[in-house]
Design a protein around this nucleic acid. Structure first.
Lengths: 217, 217
DNA sequence: GTCTATACTTGGATAGAC
DNA sequence: GTCTATCCAAGTATAGAC
């Protein structure tokens, strides 16, 4: 109520407002990437979506590419927090498959992987962007490897397939499935695939129970 | 030598020249998509690469999007011819894995899958483009399903995993691996993954030889 | 059929008012 | 810190010369 009559002397209020604006731009960038892709994510399109002026993109981020990287960071951070917690409570391979399917479902619904895909695909159009994107995708392979190590570490699978190769494959699969799902609009197809994978892991787990865990020859 | 003095009455020469120009533009579009992505594939960038005038893009294709679709058609056609022949000579699952690895290697080297990836990712920026791209990606899932049916059709795997789900997954994996490979520049990582997959298929084939091919309970 | 020239639009980026 | 105004580069598309 007394807002207009009490100008604060410290910069706290201004900083807060600034942070809010940055957040609005980042959120709008995420939405624009999801709806119109990298090629459609212009400063004007994003700022219009945020209900803000176009010049603020350059004031706060210096360039469109930097804003898009900030959007990628935000999405990546959200996913990391959310999925670290999910994987935390998991111990068996079948549980991990459960969580993976759940993660994919959330990714499709929130459109978070779309942001990753668009940034990876769009990176080659802007000099220097590929390296920036690469350093932000790397952690996901590491994270996936950690989840595999945790749940498959003492299973017979571990000696068959190196966790880092599997992790690389899983991340690639997430990206690829997202692309196809986004393209054909059929999210069920990809979800049934996770169901199949889960069946397979369960079955192979049962089979491997009959096999010796490791040979020494 | 007598070129300027002998105008031909039929349009054959002109048509031939036109076809040649179209081909130059399509090739340049492919190269531009590979190097600078969908967002960098402008009429100017493509025509400059082709050593032709920018207006020819619109004369021959009507729009940049149409030229890019023609480029996608060309790549898709080349791949289909090449890989149909490769799969033709295959009968066993292990041979198919061999061919798959070979196909991926060629895809990486030629950059053909990059074109698919860029078109899929870029499609959402232009109204109506997604549907066009989708109809051009669909055949690849069908083709992959055919290759799986042919080689795994009478193996125990067939009853475990529906071929169309596997095909969808394989195509997604190709797209995803291409993205990661293109991003980090490390083509060996993806290639070792195909090696792992081949080991796995060989091993599971050996294991399944001890199991009954089908249960009736 | 191809090239030059040009109209028009969109987008990146900055300057200055508020 | 935000908004208005503006500049300039790049992109789509068309018209007309060759």
């Amino acid at each position: 109520m007394a807002k207009s009559g009490s100008p604060s002397k410290v910069a706290t209020a201004g900083t807060k407002r600034s942070a809010n604006t940055r957040q609005l731009l980042v959120n709008a960038a995420i939405e624009t990437l999801k709806d119109h892709g990298f090629a459609g994510a212009s400063a004007r399109a994003i700022s219009e979506r945020a209900g803000l002026n176009q010049g603020l993109v350059f004031y706060h981020f210096g360039s469109v590419a930097n804003l898009l990287l900030a959007a990628l960071d935000a999405v990546s951070g959200d996913r990391m927090v959310r999925f670290s917690a999910a994987v935390e409570s998991v111990s068996s391979p079948t549980e991990l498959m459960d969580v993976a399917a759940q993660i994919f479902r959330e990714d499709i619904d929130t459109g978070h992987v779309t942001v990753l895909v668009e940034m990876i695909a769009g990176a080659s159009s802007t000099p220097g962007l590929s390296a920036e994107v690469a350093t932000r995708i790397g952690p996901w392979i590491t994270f996936t490897k950690g989840a595999i190590d945790k749940t498959f570490g003492d299973s017979p699978f571990a000696s068959l397939l190196p966790a880092d190769d599997v992790a690389y494959t899983i991340v690639a699969l997430f990206l690829g499935l997202e692309m196809l799902t986004h393209l054909d609009g059929d999210r069920e197809h990809a979800l049934t695939i996770f169901g199949r994978a889960q069946q397979l892991v369960t079955m192979l787990g049962a089979v491997s129970a009959f096999a010796p865990p490791k040979e020494t020859s």
